[in-house]
Design a protein around this nucleic acid. Structure first.
Lengths: 192, 192
DNA sequence: ACTTTATAAATGAACATTCATTTTTTATAT
DNA sequence: ATATAAAAAATGAATGTTCATTTATAAAGT
C-alpha cells in the first residue's frame, strides 16, 4: 500500500467510525476520543486529517451526499421517457436508503438538526440537479403537476426516509411486492 | 399567582427555553446552564423540576407530542366522511407544522436522532390512533389503497415536515393556493 | 418555627484540542 | 543492498474549558 492509499485509508476509517457513532448514539454523543478509538488511531491523529470536529462532520456530509447521488443516478440516461427515468432514479434512491442504513440515517440527522455548516449544506443540495431537470421536462410534457420541485421531492423521495427509519426500528418491513405499490403512490402524488 | 400556577409556570419556562435552544443550536449544543439562563432560573433549579437532562428532554417530547395531536384532531368528529375527515386532520397538521415552527423542528430532531428514550418514543406514537382508524375505514370503503399505515403516513403527513424545513430555511414559501394543491397530492398518493 | 423553593458556588467527569516526543517512511549516500 | 539523515506521520499525555450534577446555604411561603 503506497502513501496516498494509506492516507485515504485512514481518512475513510475516520469517516466510517464517525458515521457509526453518529448513527448509533447521535451527534451529541460522538466524542472525538471514541471516534479515534473506533478508527484505530490516537485522538491527535484526527487533527492531522481534519481541522476540527466540525470540519470532520462537514466533510463526511459532503462525502456521503456525493456517494448518495452517484447511486441515485446509476443507469440513468437523459434519453429515457420521464416516467422510466423517474422510476430508475426512485428505485436507486430506495435501494440506497434501504441498504446503506448508516449513511441514510446520518443524512437524516444532518438534514434535521443544525449540525452542518450552511455552506456545506448548500453544496450538498446541488447534486440532485438531473432529477430536477427530469421533473421540469415532465412538466413541459404535461405529465407532472406544475408544483415546485420541493413539493415533488417531498412527496416522492422524502417519504422513503420515513419508511427507512421505520424499517430500521423493526416496526415496519418493506417487501419486493410493496415496493412496486409504493412507487405507484409516489407517482400518483405528482403525476397529472 | 398561586403555588401550583407558579410551578407550572417555571416548568413551562424551562420547556420553552429548551425548545428554543434545541431549535436554534441543536441538542448537541443546548447545555443546562444556557437553558437555565434563558428560563431565568439558576441551573440547580432545573433539578427541582426534572431528574436530569434526559428526563427534561423526554418530558418535553411528550408535552409537545400531546399538544401536536390535540391540534391535529381539532374539529374532527367520527361522523364525517373519510375524505372530509382526512382533509380536516391534514390541514390541522399543516397548520401546526407551519406555525409552531420550534415545536415542529424539535419533533423532527427527536424523530431523526437517538435523543429520546425508546420508552417515551413509543408513548408519543400512540396519539395518532384516530387517524389510523380513519384510514382503516377508508380502506374498508374502498377509497384508500390497502397500504400499511406507515406508508400512508409517509406519503401524506411526513412530506409536510420537509416543506416546513424548507420554509424555515427561506428556500421555499408555501401560499394559501399551493396549500390546496399539496393536499391534492397527498390524497392522490393514497386514494384509489 | 418549619417546610418548600431557590440559589451560588463547588465538584468531578468529559470534552475538544495542543504539545513534546517517538515511530515510521522516504530520500540519499555508500 | 545497507546505513544514515531528513521529513512526515502518529502518538500519549497534558491543557484548559465546558459540562451535568451536587452541596451547603439562604430566602420565601405557610
Amino acid at each position: 500500500m503506497n502513501k496516498k492509499e494509506k492516507i485515504a485509508d485512514k481518512r475513510s476509517a475516520l469517516f466510517h467510525a464517525t458515521l457509526t457513532l453518529v448513527h448509533n448514539r447521535g451527534f451529541h454523543d460522538a466524542p472525538m476520543n471514541k471516534i479515534a478509538k473506533l478508527a484505530g488511531v490516537a485522538p491527535a491523529t484526527i487533527y492531522l486529517y481534519f481541522q476540527n470536529k466540525q470540519d470532520l462532520i462537514n466533510k463526511l456530509y459532503i462525502e456521503i451526499k456525493t456517494s448518495f447521488s452517484t447511486c441515485a443516478f446509476k443507469d440513468y440516461k437523459e434519453g429515457l421517457s420521464v416516467k422510466e427515468g423517474f422510476e430508475i432514479i426512485w428505485n436507486n434512491i430506495a435501494d440506497y436508503k434501504l441498504s446503506k442504513i448508516m449513511e441514510a440515517t446520518f443524512l437524516s440527522q444532518c438534514d434535521n438538526t443544525p449540525m452542518i455548516d450552511e455552506e456545506y449544506r448548500k453544496e450538498g443540495l446541488k447534486h440532485l440537479q438531473p432529477l430536477l431537470d427530469l421533473w421540469e421536462r415532465g412538466q413541459e410534457e404535461g405529465l407532472i403537476k406544475p408544483l415546485s420541485p420541493f413539493v415533488l421531492y417531498a412527496f416522492t423521495i422524502y417519504p422513503m426516509s420515513f419508511l427507512m427509519a421505520m424499517q430500521e426500528r423493526n416496526v415496519y418491513g418493506l417487501t419486493k411486492k410493496t415496493r412496486k405499490e409504493i412507487f405507484q403512490s409516489a407517482w400518483d402524488a405528482i403525476s397529472i
